[in-house]
Nucleic acid binder design. Structure first.
Lengths: 194, 194
DNA sequence: GTTGCAACCGGAGACAGCCTCCGGTTATCT
DNA sequence: AGATAACCGGAGGCTGTCTCCGGTTGCAAC
């Protein structure tokens, strides 16, 4: 939709700016994977070979950086809903998606703090991602309700909250096994009462 | 078992030390309730009317302070298992205990970070509390398995992890309702497969 | 190819919070 | 009353956050 200043095209971003931004994201992902969401931003800037001011111009807050780092992965996770919905019966699709979610957490493709704002943070940063993830689980749950595999009153958001919750609990060698068992319990517990 | 220096009785702790310690715990609980586990320790010391050195002598780490603040509540929560076990059928006892857990979180009698180390933190600080909480849920689950109300292979720890997990997810006006629904799903999902 | 200039850079410095150190105080015991 | 060890507290060193502003440079226009 046309807006003001339509005749003044914005200048193409500079290549050094794009390069620095990509570099920061790459280094930040490594740092967050290794040290968690509280990794030092100054250290990340140094490791990326940029000044702190540069990092802050690209990402004004830690949350902005985290969102940018994990946006692609969150989008991939959301998009996987369609794949599962096409190929699997409703409850199996839901289960497969939840297990993929667990897998993403286990392999640190997404970390817990990146998920926090999906479930209630005030930040507008995650609106895109939030909509996608919530849309994904909404679709999966609605389809399973429709096929009467899941009770009618189930709130998709409750399942999402549970998944995000376990991503925060201290990791251990058997975290993934435990999380997978939880998915099983959640699926079983979501079935209609006979 | 007698050890060295048996004949030298330890000196009674000074009253000003006890008073300061109590004061710090009281102020810290208010601060953690209001601002979360990352409330400034310097601010807590100031509000308690003690020096930072005093706070650090009583509680060498933030985790030590958190554990001391919430120890009583965690012990109360653990102890409630006996009350429920005496009065309620197995599954109802488990459900009631889990709902009490949710209530403690909702009313901030316990906060999420105080629970973290219960499920895998390396710290020895929480060993007492950890044992009690894990003992409580172990007892509840074993009793329900024995009465065949719950499947044999259920790991009590998985349920505990789920509960602690949702305590970390961003609070909202309907958090408690959502968490209670989750308890319902977990209980239902833990039933034996027919 | 040159010039203008705005988008970019980076790092020093102010600030907050953490945590230790050590000189001084005081509560307890004899 | 005196000795003394347990206690106090706050300044200072340190780390990390984050802004500011002088300098640089990539891009567009000519």
């Amino acid at each position: 939709m046309p807006t003001k200043d339509q005749k003044i095209a914005p200048r193409k971003p500079r290549t050094d700016a794009q390069r620095n931004r990509e570099r920061i994201l790459e280094v930040a992902k490594e740092a967050f994977t290794r040290s968690g969401a509280n990794a030092s931003l100054d250290d990340i800037a140094k490791a990326a070979g940029v000044g702190a001011g540069t990092l802050y111009r690209h990402f004004p807050t830690r949350d902005a950086l985290i969102e940018a780092v994990y946006r692609t992965e969150v989008e991939k996770l959301a998009a996987a809903e369609k794949k599962f919905s096409e190929r699997l019966p409703p409850v199996e699709a839901l289960r497969a998606w939840m297990l993929l979610f667990v897998d993403y957490i286990a392999t640190k493709q997404i970390i817990g703090p990146a998920l926090n704002s999906l479930v209630g943070g005030p930040s507008k940063l995650y609106e895109g991602s939030r909509g996608q993830i919530q849309g994904a689980i909404d679709s999966l749950v609605k389809r399973a309700i429709k096929s009467r595999d899941i009770r009618k009153d189930l709130e998709p958001f409750d399942l999402l909250r549970a998944l995000i919750g376990v991503s925060h609990v201290a990791s251990g060698p058997d975290w993934q096994q435990s999380a997978r068992r939880l998915v099983d319990i959640l699926i079983t517990g979501s079935r209609p009462v006979k």
